[in-house]
Amino acid sequence: MAVTTEQLAEEMYQMVKETMGKKNLKAGDLTKAMIAKYGEGEINKDDCKHAIRILMDSGRCVYSYFGGSFITLPHKEGSAPE
């Protein structure tokens, strides 16, 4: 594939960063956005899965739960006591 997994991870990170506080994104949203951008011939779901794993393992993004699981930037939990 022309686009590397690391590049996909970076683009996903930018998407999460830009929408933080406005819209919560799920793994499926990021995957669909990347496939829409590069086309199914270029990347597939497994590439996106690996890119998300890179994001998570690096700690740049975390999974959060707001009624369902979303991918967000690391943040202090609103529910957590000071």
């Binding site: 998570m56 393992d57 975390v62 999974y63 959060s64 699981s69 939990e77 609103g78 529910s79």
Partner: peptide, 18 residues
């Protein structure tokens, strides 16, 4: 209920309660 719900790299297995 809710918030960050896992250990590093995981998105499940921990249910946040405060």
């Amino acid at each position: 209920h809710g918030g960050i719900v896992g250990v590093m790299g995981y998105g499940g297995g921990v249910i946040g309660r405060y």
